[in-house]
Design a protein around this nucleic acid. Structure first.
Lengths: 348, 348
DNA sequence: TTGAAAGCGTTACCAG
DNA sequence: CTGGTAACGCTTTCAA
């Protein structure tokens, strides 16, 4: 660290010190093979000496690339998302991208404006469980987008194997003797909720079980607590929740009412957030590879941005851009039932 | 939405449609009072019609401002941080700033490079519980910085009243009959850890209690679990943990070993993360206004950026820039002991 | 292999 | 109050 001027050091400073033109500095740094080794060394030395780092903003203006990716998600307060964001962040930094984050507070109306606001300073978006309508999202897609935890037609997506998870959970309950169970649904705007419900219906009917669906609640502990009394009033011996937060709210309210878990009622969550293992009784839940979702999402997005017609939705049929290219890939990460203490044999 | 060209619409397009120069468009949009009302209307109509939004990247280049703030934190996996980030994000968006996020994975060595990498695309930084050395942080401060959960000399800071929290916790334990207690320390690099320990020592000695300090552990559930056996082997009746995660790890391991909480050992956490209320027994802990920390942090940073000599560290004494200006303000948010089930009277 | 020059989209400055 | 022009820092032609 020799040079440390108060103001930023520009390419011109390096050029002057190295005794070459700005163009050469640019080349020497970006494409070391296209300049004479001697020049390259002089430039690199000068750059290091001055502590020069190219101004990414200025570069963006000419190249159109920003080296930023935008991440939009509904609620950092749901422990599921920080885990995904952390994975995104890690993978993005590895690929030399920075992450611009927006939390929409579960408000669908905020998503589109947020995307529009960020659009100019990012090369692409990772939409985490977006709540807005398909058409709105398609309409705002001027930049490459990858959708996480949802599928929207032309965009690549990364989702969890919700059906598989539900199948595992249901057969677990079936084996324990449960025949009539209920599902506490999450937000109506949540694709994962619909996907889980779909899988759940298939699984229960395949096993000849009865499913009682209970209204849509907020994907929070409070949401679960609010639904608990409805569940208790239904003739069920087990309940599956949209996610762990809801399941936790259910358990909490059951316990407050003296309803034993799993003695009188078994409870199954979804996501396997950290706290699921810590509560009493520990929560039986369906684990998702959250890190994998984030990581794969970044990879897909980078592939998409690198692709030839890297517009938002690859208009004009995108030639033969198969899923392999990241074209409109649909990656599904596996789920795994984690059996813990909140499920048990049905009381006879 | 009338105009929706495939490519971005620039100021020139608006100028052409409105029949004025680019300069006028700029003014009409930025400073509506400085142009004739008629012109203003024509420009605004044209802009709306074309769906024009100024290119923030290009603007940055000339103004030097980016409308981004950088947030650097050690671990999104610790539920404390997402809550703070959410508050930051909300407040930032309200003020029309976007948030660039970096998770350093508790690695002090990553912080400085991360800051340097982001420096060019942000107007200032919010350093959340930074782990690097004071000098390193001061050295990298080319942009305004506000530090959260730590105090570093020339920077404004927002911290929790750790001493007050510890005092409340200790007198709570004292009232329950505890006389010898231990503290399971967090990362050595954590200022909060040192501050809490400081407050703890003062509180215990004021009440004539004995404090047994137990080594530094990672601020995670695993860290707590790892320290549990050391605590159990010490002649204490209660233990305070660096944070809730560590406390949870302690409780978990105690229960696995058949040590009753709070029957044989009382446990107190810090932070009051969501899960603290959900575990069994619910965790007695010291609550911090996490949202407030984030919100105040943003306000302080904005004030600092607006300040006259808005360099990183306001060199040259910054005239009379008192705390009121956000100069080198030190805001302390209150803490509040939340008594739950993990603490009880000492077994006789 | 290198340098000069032309932008990228915007704002700031200075005449008019 | 308005329009031209320069400039921000960089990359990318195009000649030499």
């Amino acid at each position: 660290m020799i040079g440390e001027p108060g103001v930023a050091v520009t390419i011109k400073d390096v050029a002057r010190l190295a005794g070459v033109s700005a163009s050469s500095v640019c080349r020497a740094l970006a494409d070391p093979d296209r300049v004479r080794p001697e020049t390259r060394d002089r430039v690199q030395t000068a750059a290091r000496q001055l502590g020069y780092h190219p101004n990414r903003v200025a570069r963006s203006l000419i190249t159109g690339r920003t080296a930023n990716i935008g991440v939009v998600l509904p609620d950092l307060g749901n422990p599921f998302f920080p885990t995904v964001v952390k994975a995104i962040q890690t993978q993005a930094r590895r690929r030399d991208y920075a992450v611009l984050l927006t939390d929409t507070d579960e408000d669908p109306a905020v998503e589109v404006p947020a995307i529009r606001a960020l659009a100019m300073q990012v090369d692409g978006f990772l939409l985490c469980s977006p709540r807005a309508a398909d058409d709105e999202l398609r309409a705002v897609a001027e930049k490459p987008m990858v959708v996480l935890n949802r599928r929207i037609s032309p965009f690549p997506s990364v989702t969890a194997d919700n059906s598989g998870g539900m199948r595992q959970a249901v057969s677990h309950l079936h084996a324990l003797g449960h025949r009539t169970i209920s599902y506490v649904a999450g937000p109506r705007t949540s694709w994962s909720n619909r996907d889980r419900l779909r899988g759940l219906r298939a699984a229960t009917s395949a096993l000849g079980m009865t499913l009682i669906e209970i209204g849509n609640v907020a994907p929070t502990v409070a949401g679960g607590a609010a639904a608990a009394d409805l569940v208790a009033a239904a003739p069920v011996t087990a309940v599956l929740a949209y996610n762990d937060l809801v399941a936790l709210g259910l358990v909490q309210r059951f316990q407050a009412r003296g309803i034993a878990v799993p003695g009188q009622l078994s409870v199954v969550g979804f996501d396997d957030i950290l706290v699921a293992a810590l509560v009493g009784p520990p929560l039986t839940t369906v684990a998702i590879g959250k890190e994998q979702i984030g990581r794969v999402g970044v990879d897909l997005l980078l592939a998409l941005m690198a692709a030839p017609g890297a517009a938002g939705l690859d208009r004009a049929g995108s030639e033969r851009a198969g899923p392999g290219r990241g074209g409109r890939a649909r990656r599904v990460v596996p789920t795994q039932l984690i059996v813990r203490g909140s499920t048990g044999p049905v009381a006879r």
